[in-house]
Design a binder for these strands. Structure first.
Lengths: 215, 215
DNA sequence: CAAAAACTTGACTGCTTGGTCAAATTCAAA
DNA sequence: TTTGAATTTGACCAAGCAGTCAAGTTTTTG
């Protein structure tokens, strides 16, 4: 559970440990997210963290332990806004808020999204159990919320699970495929209003669809 | 351009070459799509193709050459339905058709989608140029088509580029994240009607949105 | 059916990589 | 300030890797 650098003082980490572990996980996030688990090398992570490989392995016993730590940290943070969807809030407003936050996160921390995507694409060797238990439970819960909203007539009748997948897919696309987005849209992606423009477009489709409304 | 196994007869490939190259690219697609470029080993690809590594390298001069070949083949196939979107067709119907085909492809050949996703996530070292030239041109072209549809009042006013991204993101999600989808939906994903159910849900959202229509 | 060309492979090479070890160097508590 | 623990590192090792080579075997062709 804890790292191999565990010392006699009961679980508490020294100042240096705290600092270095933080430096390492940040560096590891960067490297793992672009190179994938297998593509990443401990040497590269160490270099990016500004220390020797040996020292890195003093804080985390193995490459896999670094990876597991980074994944854990990331997933918690990434899932928070989803957990925060309020069953008692206004449905449209809750979904609008969720999409906005996810888009903001994708723009600010694309590495986190990429790391997660990579893990899933490998077949989730590390997160498989998490997906089947905690994540499934959470999605089931939110699906029920969405269904109740539909029953109340506040939302059009849509399969809640596929709606969730659509929102995940779309929002994360801007992080995971940023290379492609940038290749197609060019420098526009770096202009200030870009994120708002994305949010506007995505919300417009998810909320209203593309079939014109005659109102 | 051609492989190192190029022989004196002008470019024509023998029966054995044809067979083996096909076997290899299929095996390579499987391995690259799950393990990524760096994670894949020539040995594994060869094993899956049922031949020695040395023999594989007789047909493709290097690991990268195999990869490039597989990527090329895949992208062409993958992009075809997008290119086929007909400016003179009925807008809603054209988009419905496109989404349906993409979903079907994702279900039938998730490896292709994963391979592509992996390449983009690595920063598209091999496809970067393709993205910025041919793909961009194609998307620009189709964006114009969509815009003309909007101007004609056949579609709600949406940014065409983001609409395209949304469709790509959503349809590919079922291939790239199949592990996650299956973890959450369980055995339902393997039941016969699943693909139609996905298509129905996705189309319903993209076409009509989730805001209820009072009609 | 013989010779050449095409095909196939095991053994090998040089390089990268995850991880170990022992020898420093720095830090913190008394 | 001393001393033991914590931290840091260079040298090293074994496994895994892409790619080479020479020596085969099979297929094609005249």
């Amino acid at each position: 559970m804890t790292s191999t650098s565990e010392k006699k003082n009961g679980g508490k980490l020294s100042r240096i440990q705290l600092e270095n572990r933080a430096t390492i996980t940040q560096a590891a996030l960067d490297v793992f997210s672009t190179d994938g688990y297998r593509g990443a090398t401990v040497d590269r992570i160490a270099e990016r963290a500004g220390m020797s490989k040996t020292n890195l392995l003093y804080y985390f016993g193995s490459k896999e332990e670094v990876y597991a730590t980074v994944i854990e940290q990331t997933v918690e943070e990434w899932l928070q806004p989803f957990a925060d969807i309020d069953p008692d809030g206004d449905p449209i407003e809750e979904i609008r808020k969720y999409i906005s936050i996810k888009l903001k996160m994708s723009a600010q921390k694309p590495e986190a999204s990429k790391l997660f995507a990579n893990e899933i694409q490998r077949g989730a060797p590390l997160m498989g159990k998490f997906l089947r238990t905690r994540l499934k439970a959470l999605v089931d819960e939110k699906a029920d919320v969405i269904r109740s909203w539909i029953d109340a007539g506040s939302l059009a009748p849509v399969d809640p699970y596929h709606l969730v997948f659509m929102i995940w897919a779309t929002t994360q696309h801007y992080a995971d495929f940023d290379t492609q987005v940038e290749a197609i849209l060019g420098s526009a992606v770096r202009k200030p209003g870009f994120q708002e423009q994305v949010g506007q477009a995505v919300l417009s489709v998810v909320l209203n669809g593309i079939r014109p409304r005659d109102e």
